[in-house]
Amino acid sequence: MAAGVGKSLKERVFHAMCLVATYGCVVILLALVASIFWEASGWLDWQFLTSRPSHDPEKAGVLVPLIGSLWIIGITTLVAVPMGIGAAVYLEEYLSDSLWKSIVQINISNLAGVPSIVYGLLGLVLFVRLMHFGRSILAASLTLALVILPIIIIATQEALRAVPPSIRHASFALGATRWQTVRHQVLPAAMPGIMTGVILSMARALGEAAPLIIVGGVGTMSYTPTSVYHKFMALPTAIYNWSSRPQAEFANVAAAGIVVLLVFLVILNAAAVTIRYRFGKRTQW
């Protein structure tokens, strides 16, 4: 600030408004967590974790959607991660700048902005009907894999770009082929960044409800799925189902379900932060 000029009233007001906006975000976050835990208190118990769906809120449990979500997140990850990393490696390590590369690149950033419910419509036609998977875990997982694919590709690309070109040149100079360079030098160096992106995309898939409703509906079922061709319930769709019921007690059931979902998200995010923190320091180029 220029010497001798005190803070004007205008500046003070502006500063205060910025401050309020900033800490408003923190207040909202605290209100969200507090209100959900308040609604869930007394409802989140062992009975809730081990019971099947019920029309009686006192007996309703989260077991079936919980198992369903674990199935879906597992298969989604298995499908989307190799595909996503493969596409990113292709873009960053194999393609030189060309029209084709910019087409693929623009396409990926646009895919990242497509509303997830639109992916649900694609999954409904492609996986449920054309491929005859039905309203199954498999159809839901493949749909979610398409939702998180752009996220994994973009995160992996950033991790690959952070590996300095000199590493590649040294490897090529020693006679390594392109794949040997990618596999033994570039991918290991980029792995912490890739893993962080993968885990965050898993968190995204775990909380995604809209495509699952389009693909699988919001109906309840009483058995836990044991095959990818079985019907499914998932945590976010169960939460939607409970939240939209008229009985007040189901609001508490929904809150308990949300706490279970948030616990999984916290675990995933903690894993991502740990990886970023532990490996981020070690690799200083």
Binding site: S35, I36, A203, E208, A209, Y240, I258
Partner: peptide, 10 residues
């Protein structure tokens, strides 16, 4: 990172 359905409930 909070899912959309949680915001709806909130």
């Amino acid at each position: 990172g909070i899912p959309s359905v949680v915001y709806g409930y909130f």
